[in-house]
Design a protein around this nucleic acid. Structure first.
Length: 111
DNA sequence: AACCTGACTCGCC
DNA sequence: AGGCGAGCCAGGT
C-alpha cells in the first residue's frame, strides 16, 4: 500500500457536483503536505473513469493547467455538466461548490 | 543508487 | 503584499 493508493481513495470520495482542493485530498489522505504529491499522483495514474480527477482544483478554485484529459477546457466542461458553478472561465465558485468535509481515509490501511 | 522534478500549500521575509 | 523556500512521495534518468 502506498500513499498514492490512499490518495486515489480520497479522490473517489468527492461527491459529484462538488470539488475539493489538493490540500483537502492530502488532508484526507493523512497529511496536508502531501498536496504536491496528490497532483503528481493524479498526473501519473489518472485511471480515467475511476478517479474523478476533474473534481480536484487548487485552493483558490483555479483548475490545473496541466490537465491531460482533453485539455483544461474539458475539465471545466465536465464540472459544469455536474452542476458546478464558475466565477469565470477557469475558477470554480468555491464558496458554494467546494466539498465542506472530505471523509478521512485511514492512511495506509487500504489493501 | 543518488538526484531532480512535479496537477500544491503555507509560513517567513 | 508579493516572492521564495521547505515539506511531502514516487518514478525516471
Amino acid at each position: 500500500m502506498t500513499v498514492f493508493e490512499t490518495i486515489y481513495e480520497a479522490v473517489k470520495m468527492i461527491p459529484a457536483g462538488s470539488v475539493a482542493t489538493y490540500g483537502q485530498v492530502a488532508e484526507a489522505a493523512g497529511n496536508r503536505r502531501l498536496a504536491r504529491v496528490v497532483g503528481y499522483a493524479l498526473h501519473v495514474n489518472p485511471e480515467p473513469g475511476v478517479i474523478p480527477c476533474h473534481r480536484v482544483v487548487k485552493k483558490d478554485g483555479e483548475v490545473s493547467r496541466a490537465f491531460a484529459f482533453g485539455g483544461i477546457n474539458r475539465q471545466v466542461e465536465l464540472l459544469q455538466g455536474e452542476g458546478v458553478g464558475f466565477r469565470d472561465g477557469t475558477h470554480v465558485d468555491m464558496e458554494h461548490f467546494q466539498v465542506p468535509f472530505l471523509p478521512w481515509v485511514p492512511s495506509g490501511r487500504i489493501k
